[in-house]
Design a protein around this nucleic acid. Sequence first.
DNA 1: AACTGTATTAAACACTTGTTTAATCACAAT
DNA 2: ATTGTGATTAAACAAGTGTTTAATACAGTT
Lengths: 209, 209
Amino acid sequence: MEAGPIFAGKGFRATTVREICEQANVNVASINYYFGDKRQLYHQTVVLAREMRVEQVPEPNWDASTDPEQKLLDFITLILRRLVAMQTEPWQVRLLMREILEPTETCKHLVEEYFRPFFNTLCGIIDDIVGHRLPEPTRNKIGFSIIGQCLYYRFSADMTRLMIEQQDYVDQYDLDNLAQHIYLFSLGGLKHYQTLDERVLKDARPADH
Amino acid sequence: MEAGPIFAGKGFRATTVREICEQANVNVASINYYFGDKRQLYHQTVVLAREMRVEQVPEPNWDASTDPEQKLLDFITLILRRLVAMQTEPWQVRLLMREILEPTETCKHLVEEYFRPFFNTLCGIIDDIVGHRLPEPTRNKIGFSIIGQCLYYRFSADMTRLMIEQQDYVDQYDLDNLAQHIYLFSLGGLKHYQTLDERVLKDARPADH
DNA sequence: AACTGTATTAAACACTTGTTTAATCACAAT
DNA sequence: ATTGTGATTAAACAAGTGTTTAATACAGTT
């Protein structure tokens, strides 16, 4: 499968079937013969990318005794490992990133099969740490805050590198360092909610007049 | 300038000069006559988009008495207003987003002229809240955590809408609601650093053996 | 050896792309 | 009225696009 890296690098539109076929040393007609058309090849490639990435970076195994804060750190590390590959960026990541940014039909499939259960796991961890059930929108937003921090280092990686010293990026933005930071920062945010949420929720929703 | 919305919607490559010219009711040769080629038109359009957006959403005016926590809330609101337009997404935002994700030469210009000073303002606010100077990499990462949370709701907006109930999105993810959440969450993260950073920094850097 | 179904190929097809050309137009200055 | 200059146009251009076709090659079966 030579299509992956090319789709990942240039997107669906900018990728030509001729380039793929040349890379794979097959005839231009092969894609239409085997996949129907270019679009279906793309769809198959995205699905494959997700499967490969999940396989490459498996989930941590927790048992009943694993405490929720450790789970949070593990989970953040998992996201960073899966979506935010550091030194070399595997094509699978960039391809999935494109789907998140500009969803095609393929993305619905990704959400149901992968993102939603993934997000639900995170929500469970949040509930465990806070100790009591937050209102669902609040809980979701906390989840998005954690994921958002992680995704930043993928989506904005190129720009971030333009912002800070090259050497700092190598030294201070490795995976464990980032995971540790996001963990600490998010734990702080969570604790803050834990102590404030009753008050805030009461204050934020006065009788609307 | 009819090129903006089209470039924003489909990207440089997928946009055709003929579509732009048709939209603008001018001849296909006009772009080459006025801008040289398609690429230079794109560059001009990005620069214009940034200028328009800054003008559309001006910075808040603070005085010496404004306390830093209020500044943080204002700043988060500013980012959300500028980059994460809610109901209707102006083309300027989507165009700038594309530059962040896949920087062209134009992006270097954006970083120096706009993003870097913007980020420095945020760093100043962080320093004020923490009360003492954090190590620069730590301080930067906190900044990226805050910006990352904001950008999430732009970059992943389409996907987020696939994840949660449509009605919840309308009710619970309006601009003020998000700003309030990101503010609270980030303030918690900051306070956590404020109390832990001396200890963490000592522990995290033992004699390397 | 003849047949069959699949795999592979070069070539052609129909269409779109960004850009260029050369002619025409508008209109102020002479 | 004529000239000159820049704006605007339809047409052409050359290169590239995804897809189709029809011919060929290659197995395995009868």
